[in-house]
Simulated scan of single mutants.
Amino acid sequence: MEEKLVIASVSEEVILSIEDLQREGSKKLPTFKREFFNSGSTGQITVHENSTSYQKYRLRCRVLRDVSKATLSTVVLGKTISFPLCVSPAGLHAMAHPDGELATSRACAKRGILMGISSFSNYSVEDVIQAGREVRDVGHVMQLYTMKDRALQERIIKRAEKAGCKAIFLTADSPVLGVRYNEWRNDFRTPDGLSYPMIERTSEMLIAQTHDSGFMAFNSDTHSWAEEIPWLRRRTKMEIWIKGVLTAEDVLLAREYGCDGVIVSNHGGRQLDGTPSTIDALPECVEAADGKIRVHIDGGIRTGADIFKAIALGAECCWIGRPMIWGLAYDGQKGAEKALDILYDEFRRCMMLTGCTSIAEISKASLGIVRADGPLARL
């Protein structure tokens, strides 16, 4: 009897995958928080397909390859990172765990990867970067919206640059928020006690308005390529990346306006439902980039094999959001570290089992695509 109780206790705490972390982390969140983090817009098509679209790709294993010295490291934004994964800017980390972005920053530094800091961070850019530096100085980027208050926008840029951020990630897919039924049904508001120091919003200000109305109050829907990119260039020496690109046309515009990179992203399925999954949008974006501009991807990455597939299809690096939220909800910094450790180990094993000894060796030759009418199609 005693042995059975021990076995049950151990099995409840075993976290082996991001799916496990999602399940157990989500259990610890009340409904309004869980739905805010996990849901997308309207019918949830895009948020679902972001993950499931990876499943049509198959891995072409190579055998009898010496992978004993396989290296996962790569260079992103001038920084050597431990593997081609970074943490996307996502707001309200402190709604998942009180340590919020501070815990995330320490977890990223411990794993040796970059972190994006959201304008909706519950801690200041200075504090988040300092928390990471207490472990290791790897690097951070600052996410930014186009704001009606240009003076506030400029203050954020100056603070981020002074604190040591390497780039601005301009979120370009949000002239308005997507139709998020769950937020409206739950009358979602930022919980009491949490603030947004980067956009200078106190807890009292936030609790007085819904998330949607608060966003509309400060965000500008008049943004444009011709206005935003030159405006940013005049105010910072940081790299300028465009986040939210899904088409070849916008990659070409990013090249035309001298941007440093693009992140293929659909906002985690939270904006326009029915857009393509990011892994499906990636190939045309890589082709349009033609090696003249860097291409990263986020959205739906749940396994190390997903990272491998995105790199094989031409992404330089992948970014994750929700897995870190689930890790924080599950066990704070330790949970966030667990998420990164899982993905690192899965990616390492995937590389070795496909016979790749470096990131440079990962290519379309490593993938096939499932066909309904016959054998696996090579890419």
Results as ranks from 00 to 15, higher is better:
A312Y: 05
I279C: 02
V251S: 02
C86E: 08
V370Q: 12
A281E: 06
T247G: 04
I342P: 02
L232P: 07
A281K: 05
M147H: 12
G368Y: 11
L114C: 10
G335Q: 06
Q153M: 13
Y123I: 03
G40D: 12
A94W: 07
G244T: 03
L102Y: 03
Y54I: 03
V14H: 01
I369C: 06
L282S: 01
G374I: 14
L64P: 06
R255L: 12
A281I: 01
R180Y: 08
Y145V: 07
E19K: 12
I113E: 11
L85H: 10
D260Y: 05
V176P: 13
R201I: 08
E346Q: 04
A254K: 06
S124P: 05
M216V: 12
S174H: 14
L379T: 06
H48F: 13
N122Q: 06
I168G: 00
L272Y: 12
S39G: 15
I129Q: 04
Y196N: 00
C108K: 01
D173S: 09
A226W: 00
Y57H: 03
K148D: 00
D149L: 08
P323K: 13
T104G: 04
Y181P: 11
R255K: 15
L16Q: 11
A281M: 00
M147P: 03
S17F: 09
Y54W: 02
T275S: 05
Q130N: 15
T210E: 03
V176R: 14
S53T: 08
R106C: 01
F83M: 07
G300F: 07
N266M: 08
L253N: 15
T42A: 15
D345R: 14
G355Q: 00
I156N: 02
S51F: 14
D306K: 02
S41T: 04
M352R: 13
V262L: 00
